[in-house]
Nucleic acid binder design. Structure first.
Lengths: 223, 223
DNA sequence: CAAAATTATGAATAAATTTTGAATGTAGAG
DNA sequence: CTCTACATTCAAAATTTATTCATAATTTTG
């Protein structure tokens, strides 16, 4: 989960942004002037900074420069007017992107997401024995050959692969599969998923290569 | 290579500009009145328009307004005199920049290059199998032949093509299509777009060449 | 070893998702 | 205003997946 630092003295904008960003799944930290921004930057180490150009006391550009001395954290600059944008557009301000007020929160969120995605390249491919698990593609490859899994099957294998060797109870596994609470499913359903995954991977419960049954406890990947 | 539409009734200026622009690596289209300008704009989809304010029959401002109804293509307005510039400078004319006659062709070329750079930051043609996706022109070519897509269809295909192989949820896709937050659309609308894109590309959901359905998750381009 | 508990599995059924053709809504062009 | 293109919704059909169930197999325990 990515941390965003909002540096903005207008409390309304601050709160608006916070709301949208939280909704988009980000953790939010706030600062309302340059000094505070630098402090929070040091202590919280955010993954991205949204920085108002016009700040009390210290200019946003100065803040950006200061941060750039130690870090390449992506910075999105908020500018109040188009003229301001024109003023700075030629400058080396250290910002990675600009958004002009008034802005659409949705657009800002999109830009943030893009920049985050660009800066912190993707989810990691998990390798386990001859398996490759690609979360983005929702695909599993076995010795390079794709094994088509359903979404639930994929999620289970993915969950188990987070910690090979660790036992996952059926309840653990259900938590990984179901996003909603109300979806109560019979315990043994998991067994069927496991059976199907094993079948597709050519695995055998008696002498498993991948998925071990742990009697009375659950399942785990065999290390 | 960027296409510039010159709308100018003075043939000397037309030719002068054409020469300079070609030399600077642009493709040049010409029109000598408003009606022709609008036609060429439709058919040629230029990346930038140089528009004379004084035109026979229809005023340049009217042409600009007309174009602005459908497009944000950058427009540079040519004005004959400083007084004229004063007359229009406060108006919302839809122009992005103004150049006063007599002008130095070099300066105009510079301004065009700037505006192009600002408008089309790093436009890259995406190639995917036998498809070519041109973001600037909003066009898709299949084995060199243009496949006419609507704006939304184009945006979806473009979004998917950013990361072939990666699954895009319907929500992801909607984010790519809709810029405003309030524009909430029924989930299944995406399915219909996909259907239409497939139809136009001659793709088949059962054994897709391009767009794969991922049951329970979304869509992705088949790598 | 036998009883009890747990897991494995094939098959049946239920549920969910996708595909599609058609209907409806909407805005712009002529 | 009508015509057209596009966006959107709707609903039925086709497809795929999720879940349950019954029974067999296996493991644990005493």
């Amino acid at each position: 989960m990515k941390k965003i630092l909002i540096v903005e003295d207008d409390e309304n904008i601050q709160n608006l942004l916070e709301m949208y960003l939280r909704k988009a799944g980000f953790e939010v930290i706030k600062a309302c002037n340059g000094a505070e921004a630098l402090n929070k930057f040091e202590s919280e180490k955010p993954h991205l900074i949204v920085l108002d150009l016009m700040l009390p006391l210290v200019d946003g550009i100065e803040v950006a420069k200061e941060i750039r001395k130690n870090s390449n954290v992506p910075i999105i600059m908020l500018t109040a007017k188009v003229e301001e944008y024109d003023r700075i557009k030629g400058l080396e301000t250290g910002a990675d992107d600009y958004v002009t007020k008034p802005f659409s929160p949705k657009e800002l969120v999109l830009r943030i997401q893009n920049l985050i995605k660009r800066t912190y390249p993707d989810e990691k491919i998990i390798k386990f024995k001859d398996l490759e698990i690609h979360p983005g593609e929702m695909r599993v490859y076995q010795s390079g050959k794709e094994i088509p899994l359903t979404v639930k099957e994929f999620k289970i294998l993915f969950a188990l692969a987070q910690k090979p060797g660790t036992v996952f109870s059926r309840e653990n596994i259900m938590d990984a599969i179901y996003t909603e609470y109300d979806d109560v499913v019979f315990d043994r359903t998991i067994d069927v998923y496991i059976k199907n995954i094993r079948k597709k991977l050519g695995d055998n419960p008696k002498s498993p290569k991948y998925i071990e049954s742990v009697y009375g406890a659950g399942y785990r990947l065999k290390k």
